[in-house]
Structures are given as structure tokens and as C-alpha cells.
Simulated scan of single mutants.
Amino acid sequence: MTLSKTHTKMAYLHTNFLYLQPIILYTFILLTSNHGNFLTIVTAQGVPPSSTRLTSLFPHLSFDRDYSQIFGDSNAQIYANGSNAKISLDKKTGAGFASKNHYNYGFFSAAIKLPSGFTSGVVVAFYMSNSDVFPHNHDEIDFELLGHQKSRNWILQTNMYGNGSVKTGREEKFRLWFDPTTEFHEYTIIWNSHHIVFLVDNIPVREVQNTPAISSSYPSKPMAVYATIWDASPWATHGGKYPVNYKYAPFTASLGQMEMAGCAYDPKDLSGKSCSKSSSPSSLDPVDGQDFVKLSNQQIQGLQWARSKQMIYSYCKDKHRYNVLPPECTTK
């Protein structure tokens, strides 16, 4: 995500959210012949392995207390006593919120229900950034949900960069194994000095380990949490080939179950002690707790399933984009 996108993204919240176990999704294609007969092709998208519900470990925060609206006027609405929000995109504007605190590592999650129908060019993003403090040298960790141009299916894109390393895109794209427009689903970021993990409904889909090969581009400065909806036609649809069709506007994303746990950064504490490591962290500490510094065997199985069954693009395999792949791609 570039700087301009940072001021046009953000998402979150919903109480009374029912967690639904993943189910098999099927794609039905009907081919009609000249004689009126049709052939049905059924494709199973798969069922992920079970995984620990990390999102059950942390309390849900208040949207109106912990976030500030950053743009969108009436296109951003808070309801359910401050625990839920809706953000909309129309011809006039998108909408977005940002957390009032910056965090130096932690656990960050949002439950999101996406707009239905034709959504080409629409992007709903849940992400972390510090471009407001470091405009020329910022860090970022992104969930970007991309309205798709032909099949009308949403695509999940993850990305990250640190210290302004925006020229090296580290995008990976995934199919979702559920319909994200009918129910709320959880999108979670674990970020600490050990690794970054992207999880969907508590299933890890991507892990970025903080190794020497990537350390110079690893996000390391305190970041705020954002959620936005915006028009990404020139960026997300092959140079504007499939722009947003405002005949179908407004496009509205519903947000709920905000969780932010970790080290809230105190800008007045220049010593950094407010975010220093504990000598004996709890196992539930998302910064250094044993349950968050590395994946469990169960989580590794989920990660392998997501990457083998659902991933459709990785920058590490894009030799057309890079004459020389980034160093972390060739390091075991």
C-alpha cells in the first residue's frame, strides 16, 4: 500500500458475531446446449484444518472509544453502542478509521463482512501503518480485500514492508474458502520481533519470519491500526481495465469484534521502556508469549493447507517482475 492508500483504507467491528466453522464451498457452472440440456461442473474449494481460536483470547474493544474517523463524512457510521461500524464507498468518497493508539507489536483483529454484488475496483483494507509519523520511511502490514473483475469473487491480498521499502512489493494473493459477503469473518495480524502472521478465521495463511535476509525491510516502528474502503480502480484492476461501476453503489462493508492487544506505544516515553520486553512474559502475551513467537504444529498444518490449496500468487515466484528475487525468497 502506498502513502495515498494509507489515507483511504480501514475496517472493523460487530457484536453478537457467530463464529461459523468453515464449510465446503462449491462452484456450479451451467453450460446450456442447443437442445436445452446443461452440464453441471462442481468444484470443491476445500475445508481448512481446525486451528486454535486465538481471537477468543482477547477482549473486544469499543469502536467509538478506540478509533477516530479519518475521512468519509457520513459514509462512516458507528452503531450498536459503539461496538460496530459500517464504511461505504460511493461516487463522492470512501471512508476510513484509525486507532487512537500506536502499537509497538501485538495482536490485531477485525471481523469483516464485505459488500456483495459486482465489486470490481473496490478495496476493503484492514492494516497497520505509521505513514502519519514517518511519511518517507514508513512501515506497513496489509490485509487488502480486492473486489474482483470477472468472477465477482473477492480476492485476499497480503503485503508488508518496512523502512519505506515500498519498491519491493511483497504481495501474496489467496482465494477465500467461504463467501465473505454473507457472514462476518475474522482477519488477524500477529506482529512482533519474531514474525508476522496473517490469519483468516484463525487459520494462518502467511508467515514472515524476521530473518537476517529480510531484517532491513521488517516493520519495526510503532504503527496505528486502520480500516478503510476506497476506489482502487487504477491500482487493483489491471491499470483501470475494470473500474468501479458506481451504478451498484454504495458499496458497504460491516465491521465488528475489534481486538488490539500488545504494547500501546507512549510517544512521551522516548526511552522506549513502555514497550520493553518482560523478563517472564505470559504465554498469552502477543509480543513475547510462547503461544505467539512461533506457530504450533496445528497452525503449521493450517498454513501448509492455505498455501497449497488457496494461494494464487506469490511475489517470490514472480520472475517476470524481478530479475533477481528478493533475498528472503531464496533463503531457506
Rank of each mutant, 00 (worst) to 15 (best):
I87T: 08
V47G: 08
H35T: 15
H102Q: 14
S129L: 06
L20F: 10
F58P: 01
N104E: 15
D90Y: 08
A76V: 06
P22F: 03
L146T: 02
V122N: 11
S151R: 13
N104L: 15
E144P: 06
T52I: 06
L25P: 06
N84I: 03
G121T: 10
D64Y: 09
M128A: 15
I23P: 08
F17T: 13
S131R: 02
I24A: 14
S129V: 11
T27L: 08
A85R: 07
S74N: 13
T119Y: 11
Q21F: 09
N101K: 14
S116W: 08
S68D: 07
N34C: 12
A111L: 07
L145W: 03
L145E: 00
L61A: 01
T55G: 09
S33L: 09
Q157S: 13
D142R: 07
Y79K: 02
D132A: 09
S99E: 05
Y67V: 01
Q69S: 07
L39Y: 02
L20I: 09
A98T: 12
A125M: 03
H14D: 12
T15Q: 11
D142W: 04
A95R: 03
I87W: 09
P135A: 10
D73F: 11
N101H: 14
G36R: 12
F58W: 00
E144A: 08
Y127N: 15
N104D: 15
D73W: 12
L18S: 10
A125Q: 01
H60D: 13
